[in-house]
Amino acid sequence: MNFMSIKDASKKRPTIRDVAKVADVSVATVSRFLNGKTQKMSDQTAERIRVAIKKMNYVPNSAAREMARNSSRIIAVLAANIADYFSVEIYRGISSRVEEAGYISVLLNSGSSLTHERQLLHSINQHGFDGLVFQPLTSDTEQVAGELTRDFPVVVVDRDLPRSTWPKVVTDNYEAARSTTEYFADQGFQRVVVLTSTIELASTRIQRFQGISQAASTIETIEIDENNFQPDAVYGALKKALSRPGKCLLFALKERWLLEFLPRLMKEHVIDEARTAVTGFADTALIGSICPYAKVVSQNPFLMGQRAGEILLQMLKGKKNIPEESVIKAQFKH
């Protein structure tokens, strides 16, 4: 049995010229059809081209089409850390919107590393993405703008970049944290143990901490360096803080840390419902399964992603007067 080589097979692949010949039209007419420019084309001509394409199993050269219309139809989504359910849900929301409009979304992961984020931004500058939805690790606008030098549509999600010209989709972090802390303070949980990644690196954490500070009498903060995470050391500090006399509220600024430490705290009876209230920003049902009396703040990251995708599509269409900020309100489930 003789098999065609890859080289031979490529010679047999139909071209746009072959389609034009079978449909009895010009190559330019087939090109217009492939790019959706059929307004001035008769129904009979369009049908002949459609039949020829189907008959010959013709697959358009996507790279050539991208060059012709100066568009890749690919959207980059740069997430802070896909180890967090929140970031993954944002991506799902974005994809649900842009794919409806014929775009493909590509997920890139900074992995909580500023160095890796800079590398990815450099790569985005060099490649032909049509737009970017960005969940930055830092709130330093000048630093981000210095790295992202390409002039194309950008939407920032889950971060506040002061003086940035890019539209943003955020949660009402300050108010959600303040009102939640106040709810527990009214029940006698005046002392708060805040469990968080490094606060100063992200606007979301800064705003949440400010909200807690506004309503709490006493705050003890346990900050985690995600690039040098030492679980036993963090657990030791957390256990010590939660074991002090009197009622206290454990407030995690990220769901990941509740998932990391709650099971062990429950197992070793470090916390109980009478002495310790548990809350945090969380968007899955897992926290309630681990700690039935926990009451969490849900941000709806899928909806945030959808909104970011919608704004990016509007920008790609050239729409003006895009809102500078879109706020998706968090919900305290109590």
Rank of each mutant, 00 (worst) to 15 (best):
Q187I: 02
R178K: 12
L148H: 02
N125L: 05
S123A: 15
N228L: 11
Q230K: 11
R208D: 01
Q214Y: 14
D160T: 11
G146V: 12
E147D: 11
T181C: 06
Q135K: 00
L195N: 05
G131S: 13
Q230Y: 05
F129G: 15
E200P: 01
V133R: 07
P153N: 14
L201M: 07
D172R: 03
A145D: 05
S139T: 12
V169S: 02
I199R: 13
F209C: 11
S203H: 09
S213G: 02
F209V: 11
S179M: 10
N125H: 08
Q135P: 00
L137G: 09
S123D: 10
V157C: 00
F209G: 04
Y174N: 00
S203L: 11
F184A: 10
S197T: 08
A185N: 07
A216N: 06
D160S: 06
T221R: 15
I224M: 13
Q214T: 14
L195C: 07
E175M: 07
I222R: 11
P162F: 04
A177M: 06
L201T: 11
T218S: 07
A233I: 08
D186Y: 04
S213C: 02
R163I: 00
Y235K: 13
K168F: 00
E223T: 12
L201R: 06
I219D: 09
Q230W: 01
R178N: 03
I224V: 15
F189I: 10
A177S: 14
I224R: 09
I212Q: 02
V155R: 11
D158A: 13
T138D: 07
Y183N: 08
R150Y: 09
V133L: 11
R163S: 09
E226K: 12
Q210C: 08
F189R: 05
N227A: 05
V192A: 04
E182Y: 06
H122M: 02
H127S: 14
Y235P: 06
D186K: 15
Q214N: 14
A145I: 00
H127W: 12
Y235I: 10
T165S: 08
W166Y: 15
R205V: 00
V234P: 11
H122Q: 12
N173L: 00
P136G: 14
S179W: 01
S197L: 07
Q230V: 09
D130T: 13
R205D: 02
S179R: 14
P167G: 05
L201S: 03
S139L: 09
G211R: 15
T165K: 06
R163C: 01
P162I: 10
D140F: 11
Q187T: 01
V170G: 01
P136V: 14
H127Y: 12
V170E: 01
S179I: 14
Y174E: 05
Y235S: 08
D232E: 15
F134K: 11
I124A: 08
Y174V: 06
R150T: 13
T165L: 03
S139N: 13
P231Y: 05
L161W: 03
